[in-house]
Amino acid sequence: MRLFVENEKCSGCRACLVACSMNLFGENNPKKAALTLIPLFPDPGKFRMMVCTQCGECASVCPTDAIKQNSEGAYFVEFAECILCEACVPVCPEGVMYLDNHLAQTAWKCDLCGDCVAVCGTSALSISDQLLN
């Protein structure tokens, strides 16, 4: 199971980013979300989202095993065990491993909570084993 995004449906609204930061940190702060919006404006005038594919690369390099799997099989960061070494950030193929000392004393990533899907009005985001057209 993983998050999927259909970019052509994304409207750039960022509701997913707020939902995500609420889930991870209990805060309304899209800068602390675990997915990334890339607006391509003024040309061509489209949006792209980068999302976690649950590939597990981050977990495989974490020296303290702070990145674990939950009951859904999704990888998540155990905040208390993160030592901010940044090993996980460059290995993420999607660039959705996050670490910023100014914002949080931990790395963070998508834990597949599904709140982003709940607030995505265009159904650009979905969770499944594979993307069905």
Binding site: S11, G12, C13, A15, F41, F47, C120, G121, T122
Partner: peptide
Amino acid sequence: VVTDKGCFGCPSPCGKYSR
């Protein structure tokens, strides 16, 4: 119309970005 563009937090994006 190229993209349905939304304001912050909007599930019903009414903006019609066009070329």
